[in-house]
Amino acid sequence: MFNTKTILATVAILAGLAGMPAAQAAEEAPHIEKQSWSFAGIFGTYDQNQLQRGFQVFREVCSSCHSARLISFRNLAEEGGPGFSEEQVKALAAEYDIADSTADGGTRKGVAADRWPSPFATEQDARDANGGALPPDFSVLAKARGVHDAFPFWIFNYFTGYSEGGPDYIHALLNGYHEEVPESAPHNADGTPFELPEGKYYNDYFPGHAIGMAPPLQDGQISYEVAEGEAAVPLTVDQYSKDVAAFMMWMAEPGLVSRKQTGFAVLLFLVLFAGLMYGTKRKIWAGIEH
């Protein structure tokens, strides 16, 4: 039934069938350069320094418009994360006023268990302050974005476990701004040139290219602290965006490191167990014609 020849033939036919219309799909989504992330792959772990830098970018730049409502201060001290100490987190939380209807005056100082306070009280406030556009919440945004791979490359992703489409997209987006509408901009359906609506900015990677967010990062904008004996990290948009994308991935998937470590042990166990089961099964079936 399932001989090799049939299977090969099936694969070949499918490949032909699937490859045929691939050219068509290629033009709609711009190619996104994949970055090398420390948290990719089976042994991936977050780079603590990178997460701390990313947190700095988030705090100093992004968080003035973007909320992260599912993140608690305590998360920043949890294992597998940016690795802040409990004291640092406690001090950080105390810098924020948290709305609490039971407190005197309706607010109190933050504690580690509190959620990250949102910059705007309501969605409408957020829109009003941002020209009608709603800055999306950051909590799981890194998993809500992805990269579309053309056939047959997306098939490989199942075998490599590629799950970094979000950070790749975020990095590309933050580096994809143009001051003017570029030559490469797509023409409208009727052939007229691309026109940028009032208050929008041109971005290569944003769907539709007209994004409401002004370019948020400039070279040298944030100064990273350099610990003694460590090489200085470049103060560029490229570096900032990598760091903040990594931090956003951590926000979306804070348990990634322990999950992958457990997974490695589980896979090893299963391979060993499968080997033993195979031996047992063979031993039981020995001498039976089947």
């Binding site: 166990f269 060993l272 167990f273 033993l276 089961m277 031996g279 047992t280 031993k283 039981i284 001498g287």
Partner: peptide
Amino acid sequence: TQTQHSTTRRDFLFVATGAVGAVGAAA
């Protein structure tokens, strides 16, 4: 023959498989 075999001597492979399986189940 199988039953006779296993009543006289517990087969190491079966015991090992069972033990690993039990560890997996507990985990």
